[in-house]
Design a protein around this nucleic acid. Structure first.
Lengths: 233, 233
DNA sequence: CGCGATCAAAAAGTCAGACTTATATGTCAC
DNA sequence: GTGACATATAAGTCTGACTTTTTGATCGCG
């Protein structure tokens, strides 16, 4: 799943990135390239490449005569999938999941509305297939199978919206859904009402009913938000 | 405003990045690091750093024995501010503005609703100040002054939402608003109805009326969408 | 004729060392 | 105290040699 450290600089990033996003080096901290290179036992060129990547994510800023300084959290590129993964793996995972769920709640209804207008016949077919898959795995502790279809469902919606910005959130949504199933322990079967809503969304999209698709999807994401509030109010 | 090419690798990126995002090198194109280094007259180390940054944006993929291949558009990190800037400067600026305006329409109402719940007294003050500034510059071809306050207004809303993901879209919104004023030529004064809506949003946020703030903001962004439809249906 | 193993070339990846440049900071005269 | 100047520091750059992975071609065998 996770990109297994492409090259040496990638391996360095895999430990340095999470360390920074976890706040292990507080904002304003100063790192020196040479010291880091020694610490990770790589050449300076490799370390420089790693720093460049961190810099492009706005996690750090490299300045002459001073070093590599960690930037304040507010400046990070929090939409970078890599940064999201690092943060989800770290300590503030709950807060991160909260932010992402809100983002999801804002985007997905709009995406569903657009999908109702622009979805191809093939996408409609996929959608109903996913919904049926969810129904089939909704009872009897088949959580993994349910999750797969749930993720696929929301991915299709986002792609069918025709908006590239929405489409690129597919990975984020997948991460959130997976996180809910895996981390926050779910013993019980999914809420039957949610399953029904998914089926209805698929119908609405097929029927080209934008407002209905949007409204139903909003109910789904509102449910996700309430779920969070119950877990961590 | 724009980051003036920090270092040599930055200067390389400033021409290579826009070239790639403009589709000058179609997906699947293969570049060789050494050749690029020669072309830009920089050392291989510098070019490698530039490639690493492009790679972190998922614009290209570097593989041994094959070279640096351009990835399909669908895989780009379209939320990276740098990528957004490059694309806005390029040929598909209209489509990009469209995508971003839709994104805005989805996010800002939700952000306004949250702002009504969480905005501090100081933020409320800023908000009304911005709204008044918009009113003051709404007549008599003071478009630049109007723009400044408009941008500030939406930035405050996004920050006051308390959601870091929303807050980070401040730059995007600023870019969209500025693009509308500058590129799509606006001769006339802004729509009085829009100005009024901003004032009302400020009021609603101060009053803590989340649903009203959300609804009013949705009207604002709907207006922006309709504006786009008129310009490019 | 097809198919798998082997081999060579190509390009990225890595490293080490020398050198350049910007800049923060301390020093000194005034 | 303030300004100009000197110095040290860490990033930035370049070069050349070497390593590693991977592709695709060649060759032998069934």
């Amino acid at each position: 799943m996770s990109t297994t450290g492409r090259g040496l600089h990638g391996q360095v990033l895999e430990t340095l990135g999470p360390a920074i996003t976890a706040g292990e080096y507080p904002p304003g901290s100063v790192l020196r390239t040479d010291e880091l290179a020694q610490r990770f036992d790589v050449s300076r060129s490799v370390m420089r490449e790693a720093v460049r990547v961190l810099e492009s994510m706005h996690l750090v800023e490299s300045r002459r005569r001073v070093g590599v300084t960690v930037r304040p959290k507010a400046e990070w590129n929090v939409y970078d999938p890599q940064v999201i993964r690092w943060r989800l793996a770290g300590a503030d995972r709950p807060q991160q999941l909260r932010s992402l769920t809100m983002l999801r709640s804002a985007i997905e209804p709009a995406a569903a509305g657009l999908a109702a207008k622009y979805a191809t016949a093939e996408q409609c077919a996929e959608l109903t297939e996913c919904a049926l898959g969810m129904v089939a795995h909704s009872r009897g502790h088949q959580l993994e199978g349910y999750l797969v279809h749930d993720i696929a469902f929301h991915r299709v919606i986002l792609n069918a919206s025709g908006n590239e910005m929405f489409a690129r959130l597919g990975d984020v949504v997948a991460e959130v859904l997976a996180g809910r199933t895996h981390h926050e322990v779910m013993f019980e079967d999914p809420d039957p009402a949610a399953v029904t809503l998914h089926v209805q969304v698929a119908e609405a999209v097929r029927a080209g009913d934008a407002v209905r698709a949007e409204h139903l999807t909003r109910e789904i994401t509102m449910g996700a938000l309430q779920e969070l509030d119950i877990l961590a109010p």
